[in-house]
Design a protein around this nucleic acid. Structure first.
Length: 112
DNA sequence: TGTATGACCAGTC
DNA sequence: CGACTGGCCATAC
């Protein structure tokens, strides 16, 4: 186990407040990964395969369009939106997360 | 050891 | 304004 970029991703994702979501790109850029947002999603996938899949609220991480891309990788395809709804997150008519209301940025939105 | 792919994003044609 | 290609870095075979 290397635990490098993945841990940083988990750390940031773990900082996402309840009822709020962020995008892979935001996390990637915040970590200095730049455009390697793919690694962010890959890191989350690594968490799912890790010993503590629940260690990171991966359900609070969506893509740039707010689509639950990772939902397909969840134990159940509906687990992701179910959890978000349970946290008070609203969805658009397209089935995407309302980023305009719940978009959270790493460290840049600490004061809300 | 090398090639291929991936829970993506942004710029360019 | 719409669609495509490139890039990025790590994991898997």
């Amino acid at each position: 186990m290397k635990k490098d970029f993945a841990e940083r991703v988990w750390d940031v994702v773990a900082q996402i407040p309840v009822g709020r979501v962020t995008t892979y790109g935001r996390i990637a850029r915040h970590l200095g990964l730049g455009r390697s947002a793919r690694m962010v999603g890959y890191a989350l996938h690594a968490v799912a395969a890790s010993d503590d899949p629940m260690a990171v609220p991966c359900h609070r991480v969506v893509n740039r369009t707010g689509a639950l891309t990772g939902a397909l990788h969840f134990p159940t395809p509906t687990a992701m939106e179910e959890r978000l709804l349970s946290e008070g997150v609203t969805f658009l008519d397209d089935g995407r997360v309302d980023l305009d209301r719940h978009l959270w940025e790493p460290d840049t939105a600490e004061d809300e």
